[in-house]
Design a protein around this nucleic acid. Structure first.
Length: 511
RNA sequence: GGCCCAUUCGUCUAACGGUUAGGACGCAAGUUUCUCACACUUGAAAUAGCAGUUCGAUUCUGCUAUGGGCUACCA
């Protein structure tokens, strides 16, 4: 059956979208784009107790930052709306009634306390064919009593009537046929009268059907309930238009047990959220990839390769390349530990590929944060600085560590470098160097270097000691880019000022 | 406990019955160099175990082990 590819990403607004959710969204997006399909963003807010303000905005902002574009959704609109489940109550009510009328579901009045008691009384209690007649529901109770309870406005739920002893087949595009027996399924709650809202299972099936979703691409945690979903499609009479299922392997904690969870937060030393998130209740802040200096392209590239490969050794791929190569044929079925080391490398690669002029805009806030009045420096100057040091950083923020001496003269000088390079005759030599620098007709890196090196050679000085002492006065330690690139950028006056300051401040180490 | 899914270097993965089991991150060494990096070169590093099918198993089957998921009026 050939039909238009339509996929959906359906998060619950219960907090910030975590990185596993982002990966699911990405795979949906890549698959949709690869096949000329539509990408739907559906907000699954059927649990009124877990609603978190701001979460929906966060989801939109995160996907936008990452470059995952939504075709239909709450903001984007579309012909299949509303795209928020809490606005679809009328629709769900109709379909709940359909199931009830067809005898595929029933009404249950058991209170939470009664359910708890039943679970406590029976080991491995399950609300199903073996127990339902002992519970308080429209199957076990006389019709008059059911009516009386309903008339009295007693809270109830609607449960799906599962026929036991049937093998239910789920055909997963990644895993092949998965068969489970319906006896292990319980009579799932589909609807709660208390808030007049369905549960995930009902809403999910109804919406996917009505929105003409062709492929349900979601995390592996949904695999056990997929048979229930198959049964629901059947009960509604939608079996032949049922979407294909793809259950993606999970993202696991890098350090031990379990799937990567929202609560891991900063415990692991790297973000698990795309954007920084402030908990509206506690005020606790969880770091985000954006704020941690990751480029969205790097996050996307890294995530795409967790559980998928292009079929060859290519690793660096833009979104467009990912789209053109994406296929479930190259998806793996096993969970992937979310080790972030490689993510750092991806970010390094993407920083190298990003034009310096573009990095300037990202670096200015870092300068400000470090007390530099960045207005004092032109874009051209900052871009040149970046070009000299970006090869050695993984993150934009790390540029500061590598480049601060381009903005401030050193205040201190590294002890161990002094010990190694500062000799008794150093002040004299550097004083001579100042004269050489003053006499240079052209202070540019290319022009200055041979003249200075010739001078060192002609004097018979130790090149390493002279240059490193020179470097020490400019940088404060023995590190950094080519020395004449530094002097060219900071200029002749500042270079000489720093040498003089160094001669003044650096003392010969004892012994 | 029950049910389901998975298992190749430390990590992400390639090899879809025949390879010296490949690549990348990380790690180590070397080259380069005024320094620290970058870059480049090289290296160490894996088929969970046991049966079976087969001329031949990383690849197919079974069992065991291990890991993971689900087992709510959460998604």
């Amino acid at each position: 059956m050939d039909r238009k590819v339509r996929v959906r990403f359906a998060p619950s607004p219960t907090g910030p979208l975590h990185i596993g959710g982002v990966r699911t969204a990405l795979f949906n997006y890549l698959f949709a784009r690869r096949n000329g399909g539509d990408m739907i963003l559906r907000i699954e807010d059927t649990d009124s107790n877990r609603f978190v303000p701001g979460a929906e905005d966060y989801i939109n902002e995160a996907l936008a930052w990452l470059g995952i574009k939504i075709d239909e959704g709450v903001r984007e609109g579309g012909a299949y709306g509303p795209y928020k489940q809490s606005e679809r109550r009328d629709i769900y009510r109709t379909y709940v009634k359909q199931l009830l009328d067809a005898g595929r579901a029933y009404i249950a009045f058991d209170t939470p306390a009664e359910l708890e008691a039943a679970r406590a009384a029976t080991p491995n209690f399950q609300y199903d064919a073996s127990t339902r007649m002992n519970m308080r529901n429209s199957l076990s109770l006389p019709a008059e009593e059911v009516k009386a309870l309903m008339d009295a406005g007693t809270p109830y739920v609607v449960r799906f009537l599962i026929e036991p002893g049937r093998d239910v087949e789920v055909n997963d595009l990644l895993r092949g046929k998965v068969t489970i027996n319906s006896s292990i399924l319980d009579d799932k709650v589909l609807y709660k009268s208390a808030d007049d809202l369905p549960t995930y299972h009902l809403a999910n099936i109804v919406d996917d059907h009505l929105m003409e979703v062709s492929h349900v691409i979601r995390g592996e945690e949904w695999l056990p309930s997929a048979p229930l979903h198959v049964l629901l499609y059947e009960a509604f009479g939608w079996a032949d238009t049922r979407p294909d299922f793809v259950h993606l392997p999970l993202l696991l904690k890098p350090d031990g047990k379990g799937k990567l969870s929202k609560r891991d937060g900063d415990r692991l030393g790297f973000p698990v959220f795309p954007l920084e998130w402030t908990d509206p209740k506690t005020g606790a802040i969880s770091s985000g990839y954006r704020e941690s200096g990751y480029l969205p392209e790097a996050v996307i590239n890294f995530l795409a390769l967790l559980g998928w490969n292009p079929g060859d050794d290519t690793e660096i791929m833009s979104m467009d390349e990912l789209i053109s190569k994406f296929s479930f044929d190259h998806c793996s079925r096993s969970g992937a530990k979310f080790a972030f080391d490689k993510g750092r490398w991806f970010n390094h690669e993407y920083i190298q590929m990003t034009p310096d002029t573009e990095l300037v805009g990202l670096f200015r806030p870092v300068l400000k944060a470090n007390g530099v009045n960045d207005e004092d420096f032109t874009d051209e100057y900052i871009a040149k600085v970046i070009s000299l040091v970006k090869g050695r950083v993984n993150f934009v923020a790390e540029l500061w560590d590598q480049a601060k001496f381009f903005f401030n003269a050193p205040e201190t000088y590294a002890e161990k470098d002094i010990k190694k390079r500062w000799k008794e005759e150093t002040p004299t030599i550097l004083t001579e160097l100042i004269e050489v620098l003053r006499s240079l007709p052209d202070f540019g890196s290319k022009a200055a270097e041979p003249i200075v090196l010739d001078w060192v050679a002609s004097k018979g000085y130790h090149l390493g000691n002279v240059m490193n002492a020179f470097r020490l006065t400019l940088v404060g330690e023995c590190k950094g880019p080519h020395i004449f690139d530094i002097t060219e950028l900071i200029g002749r006056d500042e270079t000489i000022r720093r040498i003089e300051k160094g001669i003044e401040a650096i003392k010969l180490p004892e012994a």
